[in-house]
């Protein structure tokens, strides 16, 4: 049985690729799927920290491709989900330490064991990005409702299409419904119209994300506490083939609206 490899990318940095990877991986594992996360951001690794696994790293992806250890030795089992694994990036090397071909080999090996292999891509469109997408069957683009992020997402979509990715899908992260309603933030329709690709999900801005990152605990572990956690859970279920309507973003009540207008909230 061969699993599916999905690269999570964005072009622009800071839009939430790593948070998305950590949460989707954890959420898929909670659906009883075997999942491996690969941190392809060599030299600037972060996925281990977001997952709270940084103190377990002995070997990394560069050790694997250089033959210093076997692939299984470098895989770190998640401390909460025993069907979730992390292949960490090297911190003391750079993007050239792995070639696209090596990455492809690695991903296809992992696909034999896993239902899903999620690759966290580095920002940018250089070698690190090229490594991250090689071996992936599918691509998810993360963007935020900002001009710069959407522009970069568009560039990435173009590059992915050239590389033969059939239907990249987009996650719109950090949307603030209050700002959308005031007309101070692009809404989902605006962005989908511009990017012209399928929308996989929308994640609201949520300060709980900061807290969960501080703790090294993906927010999907406690979805009841956060809308972002619920959103990531829904996206994971969609990836897993479930037909799930988009989460309705909170509609402002009339009272709230008046409060805001008179400056009380």
């Amino acid at each position: 049985m061969a699993g599916k490899a999905i690269v999570i990318t964005s072009g622009k940095g800071g839009v939430g690729k790593t948070t998305t990877t950590a949460n989707l991986g954890t959420a898929l594992a909670m659906l009883d799927r075997r999942v491996c996360l690969i941190d392809a951001d060599i030299g600037l690794r972060n996925l281990d920290v977001v997952m709270g696994l940084e103190n377990r790293i002995v070997y990394d992806i560069v050790d694997v491709v250089e033959g210093n250890c076997r692939l299984e030795q470098a895989l770190i089992r998640d401390k909460r989900q025993n069907n979730l694994f992390l292949l960490p990036a090297a911190q003391t090397r750079d993007k050239t330490a792995v070639t696209p071909y090596q990455m492809q080999e690695l991903v296809s090996k992992l696909k034999e064991e896993m239902d899903y292999v999620l690759v966290d891509s580095p920002a940018g469109i250089e070698q690190g990005f090229k490594n991250a997408i090689s071996g992936a069957d599918q691509a998810i683009i993360v963007t935020t409702p900002e001009v710069s992020a959407v522009r970069d997402a568009d560039r990435i979509i173009g590059l992915l299409e050239t590389e033969g990715f059939k239907e990249p899908e987009v996650i719109i992260n950090r949307i603030r419904q209050d700002m959308v309603q005031k007309g101070d933030m692009m809404d989902i329709d605006d962005m989908i119209e511009i990017l012209a690709i399928k929308l996989l999900g929308v994640v609201p801005e949520d300060e709980n994300i900061v807290i969960s990152t501080n703790r090294g605990e993906p927010i999907v572990l406690k979805p009841e506490k956060s809308r972002a956690g619920q959103a990531f859970n829904n996206i994971a279920r969609r990836i897993d083939g479930e037909e799930l309507p988009l989460m309705s973003l909170e509609k402002d009540t009339l009272l709230k609206k008046i409060k805001r207008i008179v400056g009380l909230s």
């Binding site: 001009v147 522009r151 007309g183 101070d184 692009m186």
Partner: peptide, 19 residues
Amino acid sequence: VSSKNIAKERLQFILIQDR
């Protein structure tokens, strides 16, 4: 004149050039 529409227009123009 809401900033979202400014954003959208600027973005559309930028993307024409990019594409």
